[in-house]
């Protein structure tokens, strides 16, 4: 475990934003926080970054050194000094993180290149677009080679090509770092992350590996398509819990037990049908999300 969160709670005068959140984050994993607006994602990330004091609960880093300097944080709406240039801001941020001067110059050029701001490095931040600020925000979060990256909605404010770029960067980054990020774009989460934490009203409704999440919501649904018509035939199988015909020869079938899949296939063959496609239908993250969150 890189860090452990125990019974983390943040409450304001009349409402509780994060309510008894318990999590463990493994090193070099990419964790996505999912949930509707107001679920407490941003608040949780701010507490992890040390910017917000928890009302109660504990955030424990396994490595004490790590807590000091090894967090990179990208807020939802990163904001900079308008009068600085992109390069100047990275130098400023690097010095605050006590990076050695010799290393800093090279590193900030490298980061500007990585996030695609090389051409704008000498321009005032005041003239930057939202996407450029997001990129600069990512650059300053990565600058000091943190072991833990905390990104709050890193792709929500970007245009489609910017979003693809950032997702590619995250794929590359997660090889050597732990990334915790929040998003409400489920498709993006599915592409990048290893683990999922689903939050609603300040509680974690589900947390664990993405594969396990999908597996746990696997419900013995299969797609069968044949050359012959399935109408009539399929209704007479008593182990079929329910089915719907997408076309006369194409059916989505839900079975009562997982053992019945072979039986179904065998009977298909016995009846002399030509099987064109038989596949287990795995739920998309969106299906699972709807089910867990109850939206």
């Amino acid at each position: 475990m890189l860090l452990e969160v125990e019974q983390l709670t943040k409450s304001y005068k009349n409402h509780t934003v994060v309510n008894g959140l318990t999590l463990g984050i493994e090193p070099n994993h990419c964790v996505a926080l999912l949930g509707p607006n107001g679920a407490g994602k941003t608040t949780t990330l701010q507490m992890l970054a040390g910017l917000l004091k928890p009302t109660s609960g504990r955030i424990a880093f396994m490595d004490q050194l790590m807590e000091q300097h090894s967090i990179g944080y990208l807020p939802q709406y990163p904001s900079f000094f308008r009068w600085m240039t992109a390069r100047e801001f990275l130098q400023f941020a690097g010095r605050l993180s006590r990076m050695p001067r010799s290393e800093l110059a090279d590193k900030s050029e490298e980061m500007l290149h990585f996030v695609g701001l090389k051409d704008a490095a000498g321009k005032r931040i005041g003239g930057f677009s939202g996407g450029m600020k997001q990129r600069l925000g990512l650059a300053q979060a990565l600058l000091h080679d943190p072991k833990l990256l905390i990104l709050d909605e890193p792709v929500s404010a970007l245009d489609p090509s910017g979003r693809l770029d950032v997702l590619e960067m995250m794929k590359e980054l997660k090889r050597s770092r732990t990334i915790v990020y929040s998003t409400h774009v489920l498709h993006d989460a599915e592409q990048v992350c290893d683990d999922i934490v689903m939050m609603k009203e300040g509680r974690a409704l589900w947390s664990g590996p993405l594969d396990a999440l999908k597996e746990s919501h696997q419900d013995e649904t299969f797609i069968l398509s044949t050359s012959e018509s399935l109408e009539g035939w399929i209704g007479t199988r008593d182990y079929v819990a329910s089915f719907s015909l997408l076309s006369p020869s194409n059916a989505e079938i839900r079975l009562a037990h997982s053992d019945d899949r072979n039986r179904l296939l065998a009977e298909c063959i016995d009846s002399g049908m030509t099987i064109k496609r038989f596949e287990e239908k795995s739920p998309s993250l969106e299906d699972v999300y709807r089910e867990v969150i109850g939206a």
Partner: peptide
């Protein structure tokens, strides 16, 4: 108000 303070303070200033 601009939020740049959080980028400063996250660096353990």
């Amino acid at each position: 108000n601009s939020g740049v303070l959080s980028l400063i303070m996250v660096r353990r200033v």
